[in-house]
Amino acid sequence: MSFINYSSREINCKLVYYGPGLCGKTTNLQYIYNKTRPEAKGKMISLATETERTLFFDFLPLSLGEIRGFKTRFHLYTVPGQVFYDASRKLILKGVDGVCFVADSQDARYDANIESLENLRINLQEQGYDLDKLPYVMQYNKRDLPNAMSIEELSAALNPTRVPEFEAVAPNGQGVFDTLKALAKQVLAELRKGT
């Protein structure tokens, strides 16, 4: 959950990028890191295997500026997408304020997307969250690949509740900031409501 500090006038929120292995979660964070001005970002930490698969998490702190006198900080995390790292995924979801599901558009990854989304829902439930009540956006990544499924098919399968959805090619940044902005906006709107 977000941390509101009235003493230092800061708001801290935790955003988590979720999705199947190799869908491009880490690539999203790397692009955001590379394109953010130095004063607005901290170090990016990647706890990864030797083959650059996420082992525990990636972490990127952004401090974007003020809203109504409050400094807003977003802590971006990715989970490890590989199926057998489920225990780690559960830990990363603790205290989440908003989720971005990164889907891999390739048809061969269709089942992996479905399975990962189901896994997200269950892991949130275990901690008392309901995905349908949480700030949540959908990203269809790898739009550049020839075997990408159509947006209509992906949307019908993965986004029945019609949350904001974005097409992306994470390595060149297409859709990356649009996705982040949409999620940040929902999280801040949620805060505006208060408890």
């Binding site: 959950m1 977000s2 941390f3 509101i4 500090n5 003493s7 230092s8 901690q127 969250y129 408890t195």
Partner: peptide, 12 residues
């Protein structure tokens, strides 16, 4: 908000 994980709020 989530009852299992309440928001942390800090005051002066």
């Amino acid at each position: 908000m989530n009852p299992l994980n309440p928001q942390l709020v800090m005051y002066e």
